[in-house]
Simulated scan of single mutants.
Amino acid sequence: MKSKDLQNIVLSKYQNGDTPTKNFRDLNGGIGLRTIKRWCQMILQSGSITLSNPPGCPRLARTKGNIRKVKNGLRRKKKRLHHYKKVVEPLLSDDQKIKRKKFANWIRTHFRKEETMRILFSEEKFFDIDGIYNSQNDRVWAIDRADADKNGGIKQKRKFPQKVMVWLGACSKGVTSLVILDEGTVDHAVYIEKVLPVALKYGNQVFGSGLVFQQDGAKPHLHHLTQQWCRDNFPSFIGKDRWTPNSPDLNPFDYSIWDELVNIFNWNKVQSKITLIQQIKSSFKNIRESIVF
């Protein structure tokens, strides 16, 4: 109720003989007893309630003009909230953190910025015929769980699906050719015979004597014969004691290139190892340059 309405009620009731206390009780605390007594005194003196100025100290900050300015400012600066997916990063032990720091210091000490652009990163990855799916993005709209299950809400996956291993190298100039390893176990001998020559040929073509080869800590990479082959053939490479363990975030394949490749796949066409290899090869040709460079 507005103040003017309250004043009219108090005026009417007082003129009808109600005391200030009865007015206060009838209004159920809607206005203070002290204020009602002051208004009744005005009625007694002048026959009306006349307030020349609002009671209390004058407003200096909370004026109508200032309130309007603040509202307009908030309206102009209003920011929309966005949702973000959680970013997955490796959980590092204290020892791994020390090794990462040591590796970072070694890179800063021994490589100028232009030299880091000549690093040829490499990585292997298994692909199987069951494909991939993103549990965050792959949603089914339904009234309940049972209805969702009936309408594609279940992702079936074989216990031992057919799969192949793919090796790929990438640098600031582009990507190497694919090496598909689908015949048995990939040990150091297979790695030396089928993978390293591909990396060396590509690296020499694009960087020549400035090439720096990188590989992670997989067992075939750490074998002493693999390390010796790298010392004998690459102009420079990051040895087994330099690259830090549990560091997928340092390699562009893990946070960029592999995701690009598998998202190009037409998984509906993948029914066997042969069709899987066909999709790997065709999708590889469509990797966007912006992902690599």
Score class of each variant (00 low, 15 high):
Pro90Lys: 07
His83Leu: 14
Asp94Trp: 05
Gly65Cys: 11
Arg62Thr: 13
Lys69His: 10
Thr63Leu: 08
Lys77Cys: 11
Arg80Glu: 15
Leu92Gln: 08
Gly73Glu: 08
Glu89Pro: 02
Cys57His: 10
Pro58Trp: 04
Lys64Glu: 14
Lys69Ala: 09
Lys64Met: 09
Lys77Pro: 01
Asp95Asn: 00
Arg75Gln: 07
Lys69Met: 09
Asp94Phe: 05
Lys71Thr: 03
Arg75His: 07
His82Gln: 14
Leu60Gly: 15
Lys71Val: 06
Ala61Glu: 12
Lys77His: 15
His83Ile: 14
Lys85Gly: 04
Ser93Met: 05
Arg80Ser: 15
Gly65Leu: 14
Leu51Ser: 00
Ile67Lys: 05
Val87Glu: 04
Arg59Ala: 11
Arg68Asn: 08
Thr63Tyr: 06
Asn53Ile: 01
Val87His: 05
Ser52Ala: 12
Lys99Ile: 09
Lys86Asp: 05
Leu91Pro: 00
Cys57Phe: 06
Arg80Phe: 13
Asn53Lys: 08
Asp95Trp: 00
Val87Gln: 08
Pro54Ile: 02
Lys69Asp: 03
Leu92Gly: 01
Arg62Ala: 15
Gly73Arg: 11
Arg68Lys: 15
Lys97Tyr: 02
Val87Thr: 07
Lys79Gly: 03
Ser52Gln: 11
Lys64Leu: 08
Gln96Arg: 11
Asn72Cys: 02
Lys78Arg: 15
Arg75Thr: 04
Val88Ser: 13
Asp94Tyr: 08
Leu92Ser: 02
Ile98Ser: 01
Ser93Phe: 06
Lys69Ser: 11
Ile98Pro: 00
Glu89Val: 11
Gln96His: 09
Ala61Asn: 13
Leu60Ile: 15
Glu89Trp: 08
Pro55Asn: 03
Tyr84Asn: 12
Gly73Trp: 06
Asn72Asp: 04
Ser52Asn: 12
Leu60His: 14
Val70Tyr: 07
Lys85Ile: 06
Val70Glu: 08
Ile67Arg: 06
Asn72Tyr: 04
Lys99Glu: 08
Tyr84Ile: 12
Glu89Arg: 11
Lys85Ser: 09
Val88Ala: 14
Arg59Gly: 13
His83Val: 15
Leu81Ile: 11
Leu51Asp: 03
Asn66Ser: 04
Pro54Lys: 11
Ser52Phe: 07
Pro55Val: 00
Thr63Phe: 07
Lys97Cys: 03
Lys78Ser: 11
Lys99Gly: 00
Arg75Glu: 01
Lys78Met: 08
Lys97Asp: 01
Leu91Arg: 13
Lys78Glu: 07
Val87Ile: 09
Leu92Lys: 10
Asn53Glu: 05
Tyr84Thr: 14
Arg68Ala: 10
Gln96Val: 06
Arg75Pro: 01
Val87Arg: 12
Arg76Thr: 02
Arg76Ala: 01
Lys71Glu: 04
Pro55Asp: 01
Arg76Gln: 07
Cys57Thr: 08
Arg59Pro: 15
Lys86Ala: 13
Arg80Trp: 10
Asn66Gln: 06
Val87Tyr: 02
His82Ser: 12
Leu60Arg: 15
Ile98Phe: 02
Arg59Gln: 13
Ile98Met: 00
Arg75Asp: 05
Lys79Met: 13
Asp95Glu: 05
Ser52Pro: 01
Lys86Tyr: 08
Arg68Phe: 02
Ile67Ser: 02
